[in-house]
């Protein structure tokens, strides 16, 4: 089912490293809880093999804006 990643609706998802995670949280001065969430049952999460507590970096290609970055933390569900 990795073919779902090729659909134009699905942006690029990457798991970020522990250091990047700390840097991100420090940059926005927030805790992990305050990040937008993604469920561990999400099909994309299953494909990239992220675990609960991981932060996923999403590179979106937004209409009329271009590339933007978004982060979601994996929660149980």
């Amino acid at each position: 089912m990795s073919s779902i990643m090729e659909n134009f609706l699905v942006p690029k998802h990457e798991i970020i490293s522990e250091e990047e995670k700390v840097a991100l949280l420090n940059k926005y001065k927030i805790s992990l809880k305050q990040l937008p969430k993604i469920l561990s049952s999400d099909p994309v999460v299953k494909v990239i093999g992220a675990k609960v507590g991981d932060v996923i970096k999403i590179t979106r290609n937004e209409m009329e804006i271009g590339h933007t970055l978004y982060y979601r933390v994996v929660i149980k569900g």
């Binding site: 659909n7 134009f8 609706l9 999400d42 099909p43 994309v44 999403i58």
Partner: peptide, 19 residues
């Protein structure tokens, strides 16, 4: 790669929350 549906719940189930 170009399938599109207007059903957001189906998309959530098959392609995930970002889609």
């Amino acid at each position: 790669t170009r399938v599109y549906t207007n059903d957001i719940y189906e998309v959530e189930k098959v392609f995930g929350i970002e889609a």
